[in-house]
């Protein structure tokens, strides 16, 4: 079931009459059966978008389509969605089994059928042993699986997850995101989830949508977005350690930093640009430019050095084998890995 958003807009007016555009003319198509992540900093409108898809918020403008159906005005329960809340929202006074059965009450399903479905879901998410416990007796990870089971039990067309991993500790996060990916693969449901953690989004999404201040920045497969960011914001948002950004100029097809250090070639026009180079795109090369290392951190396989290039402080992530402890080091940028952005608009050039 593909989800299509056309010009989706949400405007909040607070008590003083001030308006905030939480979501601004968002137009995207989420392909059927894919796991798509809505990514962005806090307040960028991703949760609002999610809730509008769910039907809990009414859009101020635009339309939402599930397949060919216009669901913009449809009540949440009629859209056929499953929603997993950030704090799971499990009914504390019901057992796990009753929690999962609750949505089925409203669907005219027979008792026996309901029980079979519950068992099926419990199996799918892996909490078959916990069916008769109450939520307070379960761990955070288990509670979340119950929430997922409850969302999926009515075989929705769309599964929505609000910050699914943010309440879990680091160890559980790894495990749970694999689980989410697995469940999505097995059921084939179109899934949209919201997160502010780019690593999380990149690891499991088929496609990512980056939002900032309610405006979509880019929609692409994770690795594509990483390697070819559409604008400065996306480039800075993805990647850990973060991309180095600075001002530089292009002269006759050479990208120059500072006085005269050439870091790469380009077909762009001459001028001043915002330049981005990811730390891992540097490599040690005796024929490269010389920099003095201000700071070295050895972290096992990688070594991160802090240095100064043409008056700008930068970081480089190098393979430990190639780095010898010394005051200076010779670096080069891997070809094609210098990103040029327009100074004003931030969008990528070439």
């Amino acid at each position: 079931m593909e989800i299509r958003l056309e010009g989706l807009t949400k405007v909040f007016t607070d008590k003083t009459g001030k308006e905030t555009r939480a979501v601004d003319e968002l137009t995207i198509t989420i392909p059927s059966g894919k796991l798509v992540g809505l990514l962005g900093p806090s307040g960028c409108g991703k949760s609002t978008t999610l809730f509008m898809i769910a039907g809990l918020h009414k859009p101020s403008g635009g339309k939402i389509f599930f397949g060919d159906d216009d669901v913009t005005r449809l009540a949440p329960e009629k859209r056929g969605i499953g929603l997993v809340f950030q704090n799971y929202a499990l009914y504390p006074h019901m057992t796990v089994r009753q929690n999962i059965m609750f949505p089925l009450e409203n669907l005219n399903v027979s008792f026996k059928q309901a029980q079979v479905l519950v068992e099926e879901m419990a199996d799918l998410v892996g909490i078959k042993d916990q069916l008769d416990k109450k939520p307070s007796q379960l761990s955070g990870g288990q509670q979340q699986r119950v929430a997922i089971a409850r969302a999926l039990v009515k075989k929705p067309r769309v599964l929505l997850l609000d910050e699914p991993l943010s309440n879990l500790d680091a160890r559980l996060r790894l495990q749970t995101r694999e689980e989410i990916k697995r469940i999505q693969r097995e059921t084939g449901i179109t899934t949209v989830f919201v997160t502010h953690d780019q690593e999380e989004a990149m690891s499991i999404s088929d496609q990512m949508v980056v939002l900032n201040y309610g405006v979509m920045q880019q929609m692409d497969a994770p690795q594509d977005m990483y390697n070819h960011p559409d604008n400065l914001f996306v480039a800075k948002f993805l990647g850990n350690p973060p991309i180095n950004t600075f001002e530089g100029r292009v002269e006759s097809g050479h990208i120059i930093v500072g006085e005269d250090i050439v870091v790469g070639k380009t077909k762009a026009k001459d001028g001043i640009y915002a330049i981005g180079i990811r730390p891992e795109d540097f490599k040690v090369d005796p024929s490269g430019f010389v920099v003095s290392t201000d700071h070295i951190e050895r972290i096992g396989r990688d070594t991160m050095i802090k240095f100064n290039l043409g008056g700008v402080a930068m970081r480089a992530l190098l393979e430990s084998d190639t780095v010898t402890t010394s005051e200076t080091i010779n670096l080069m940028v891997k070809p094609g890995k210098v990103h040029l952005f327009d100074l004003e608009s931030g969008s990528v050039v070439l």
């Binding site: 009450e105 409203n106 005219n108 399903v109 027979s110 008792f111 309901a114």
Partner: peptide, 18 residues
């Protein structure tokens, strides 16, 4: 007993929807 409650609730809701 649970089944009866279930059926009752389902029917109740269903009549509401109808």
């Amino acid at each position: 007993l649970k089944q009866m409650i279930w059926v009752f609730r389902s029917k109740l809701h269903h009549t509401g929807v109808v």
